[in-house]
Each structure stands twice: as C-alpha cells, then as structure tokens.
Design a binder for these strands. Structure first.
Ligand SMILES: [Mn+2]
Ligand SMILES: [Mn+2]
Ligand SMILES: [Mn+2]
Ligand SMILES: [Mn+2]
Lengths: 220, 220
DNA sequence: TGAAAAGTCAAGGTATTCCTAATAATTATA
DNA sequence: TATAATTATTAGGAATACCTTGACTTTTCA
C-alpha cells in the first residue's frame, strides 16, 4: 500500500470523524470519490496495518496510531498553508490544494524547520488550529454562526470547509474572514437565513453556509 | 502512467544526457536502481507519450517536450533547495532529497510565487544554475577541478553530484564549497590525486572527486 | 414486522509498475 | 571472422489500487 494512498485515506477518515464517528464506508467513498467496493477493500487493509479499527456494518475509526498519523498530516498541511498564505502571498481561498499535496512529501526535518521558520503558528489561514509537535489532537473552538441569535455581536474564528474555493471567495466578499467582527441583524425564523452586518455592509448568509463558520460571541 | 513516475524518469534521463547523449537503458536502470527490463518497458512508454525519442539498442534522448518538462523540474527542484537551505537553514548536504520530493507537487502558481519570494536566485546551494521561467536550457559553467595544473589558483563554482550526502559532507570538511578559493599545491602525475590548499589548510582530493567539482581558474 | 435503504463482499477486470528468466542483438576479442 | 561477452529486449508474472456488477446481510423505520 503506497504511502500516499494510505495518507489520503487517513485524511479522509480523520476529517469525517470530526463530525461523526465511526465513519461509514459510504461516507469515505463519497468524500474520496471512489467506489464503495474499493473503500471496503482498502479499509480492511488499513485495519490489517493497525491504522483503523473496522467492524463490518459498524464503520471505521482511526486507531491511536492512525490518529497520530492523521494529526501529523494536519499539522503539516496547515503549516504549509501558513507559508503559502503569509510568505508566498497566495490567497486563503487557494492554499488548500497545494498544501494537500505538499503535506505528503514533508520530512520530519522540514516539518520542524518550517514550523520554526513560521514561528510556530497556532492556526491556519482558515482559523483552524495547528497541532503541536506532540501530536495531541486539537479541536476547533467556537460555535456555528447559525446558532447565534438576532442582535448578537460576534467574531469569526474559523471556517470548516477549507477546500471549497467558491465558498471561501464568497466569504471574502461578505467580509466573513477569520478575525472579522460582525453583528446578526436578523435571523429568519422561517428558514434560518441570517442577515449580518460586517465592515459597515449588510449581507445575507444562508443557513447552510452559516453552519460552516465558527464564531465566538462578544458580550457588550 | 503516473505523473510522479514519469517525472522521475525524465529527471534521470535528463541528468544523464548532460554527460552523454543518447542515454543507454542500462545507465538509466543503474541511476534509478531499477531493473533493466523495467526501464526498457518504461522508456518505450515514454516514447509513446512523445517525451523521449527511443531507438531500440540505440538509447534514449528527451524530445523537446520531454526536455521542457525536465527543465521545469530542475527549476522547481533548485528553487526548493534554495528555500530549504537559506530560509529553513538546512545544510546544503541535506537539501537534495526533500527538494526531489517537493518538485513533483509544485504547481505553476507556487513555482512562480516561490521564485519571487526567493528573489529569483540564479543558482542552487550546490552552485548549479536555476533555469528561468522561459525554460531555456542552462549549462553549468566552469571546468573540472581534475583538469587544473599545479600552482593554479581557482574558485569553486559548483558541485555536480548533488545527492551524495557523504561526498558533500566531505567537501564541506575540506572547505571546497561553492565560492571557496583554493590553490593546487600538487597534482600527482601517477594517479591524478591533487593536493590543495583552502582556508589555510592543506588537503588531498582524489581524482574521482575532483571530476565532480566545477571550478573557475583565477589569473594572478 | 416486513420492506426499503444501507452496507458488505466476492468475482472478475483493467492499468500501472515493478520483477526474473529467457532470448536476441551488438560489440569485443582471439 | 567466429566466438565470447556484453548489452538490450521480450515473455511471463506478481502486487497494488482502482473499477463494475450482483448477491447477500444488516439496519432502519413505516
Ligand atoms: Mn493530501
Ligand atoms: Mn486551513
Ligand atoms: Mn524527484
Ligand atoms: Mn542543487
């Protein structure tokens, strides 16, 4: 089993586990754009290698070893994102795919030196936390924008969906980038659509989108 | 045919062509550590894809398209080497292998931004030229150290064998790094071994090693 | 509780990349 | 120039990672 393929599976499973665990093979197949049969086969192999725990009909879950590898990948991914964004001046909308390739060819040495060079940042351009050298799992802080009530003032902490270029472009256009402060002007009780004010401009944010934006309420 | 594998072949063939062209399948097999049969097969496929020109029993040679790809890889490789060496503070002995992996996952955008970030350097830490955006082929300047005569003062321009960590460490230890100035104290007429003086120290350099070091004579 | 939905798994295939062993072509040598 | 040595190619096979199809099992929920 090639390292690259193994890592793509770990990445997919690990990410999916963040919203629900264990992860069904169907979910993996969907997220990876691969057939169910292939995933079934590969998950079994990952299980043989001790990287995932797998019970038929019960889904897959990373073992400690698998999780460690997943966290290391996440660390490398986000360090590269910071480099691409801050030093190479590539927009936060576009850093994901390059980082996703670079992470797989990053040696321990480069990881360490890169972290030092970047001054050990603790979050990526999307606001998500960068695991430390200890590879302890870290969680995204905050609550979903969709759960805020009318009138609430809040700050954007992070964006969950890092790879959707269109979505990130949209967020940039409405001023909802990490660090931005905004107020909920109105929350539709009908379909949950929010009207927010950021940067002096009033914008609508759909409910779907609002669940992918993590925020921190500010008490006035 | 996977991009990664294709690129490793292009790299190997391109590098070998710098000393003799066309390149025999044996030479490729040796340089890549792969069986002769595999190379025969792969070279044929590269030929089908229009990347190499291949005549059975006659060896292989990159086509214009293959050469362009090879030069682009070289450019990316050496840009990464500069980054790793200058910014991440990784020794020139150790940058090769990381760069060799990074080069294959470098997008056009990253290549361009990286070059800008590095201020468009024109040579790698080993002194070898970095091709420009135009992908015109560039040649290493200078002559082999082994061809100098007794008494000659000279400057090290570059080292051909970038991936041999042991060799590079040895060069560091004898002070023969790019830019270093030295004098040939004696050249053995028996086996070509040279005695040189660099940094106030006198050292012996074997003939083999001396053919891999490119230098520029300094007239006094 | 019984049918629909979700998930598994085996069979049979393709493409890629590598291998060893056998064979063929070329080159060197006596 | 015939033969030996070297070099290169082909034949045949293994492993990996994917695929489709279809039969089967388990779970869900009306
Ligand atoms: Mn990736
Ligand atoms: Mn990110
Ligand atoms: Mn390479
Ligand atoms: Mn170099």
């Amino acid at each position: 089993m090639s390292q690259r393929i193994t890592e793509e599976y770990l990445e997919s499973i690990g990410t999916l586990e963040e919203s629900e665990s264990p992860v069904s093979t169907t979910a993996i197949a969907q997220s990876m754009g691969i057939s169910l049969a292939s995933v079934s086969e590969m998950v079994r192999r990952l299980s043989d290698k001790g990287l995932v725990e797998y019970t038929p009909y019960g889904g897959a879950r990373l073992t400690d070893e698998g999780n460690k590898r997943y966290i290391r990948l996440t660390r490398r991914h986000r360090l590269w994102e910071v480099f691409l964004n801050k030093h190479l001046d590539i927009g936060w909308e576009d850093v994901y795919s390059d980082a996703c390739a670079l992470e797989h060819v990053t040696s321990d040495l480069v990881e360490e030196k890169l972290a030092e060079f970047l001054d050990n940042p603790d979050s990526c351009p999307h606001g998500n936390p960068i695991p430390g050298k200890d590879l302890k799992s870290v969680k995204t802080k905050g609550m979903a924008l969709s759960r805020l009530e009318t009138g609430q003032l809040a700050r954007v902490l992070s964006v969950v969906n890092e790879y959707n270029v269109e979505f990130l472009r949209y967020l940039t256009s409405v001023g909802l980038t990490p660090g931005a402060i905004f107020r909920v002007i109105e929350k539709s009780s009908y379909d949950g659509t929010l009207t927010i004010e950021a940067d002096g401009m009033t914008r609508a944010v759909g409910k779907e989108a609002a669940t992918l934006i993590m925020v921190e309420p500010i008490n006035e």
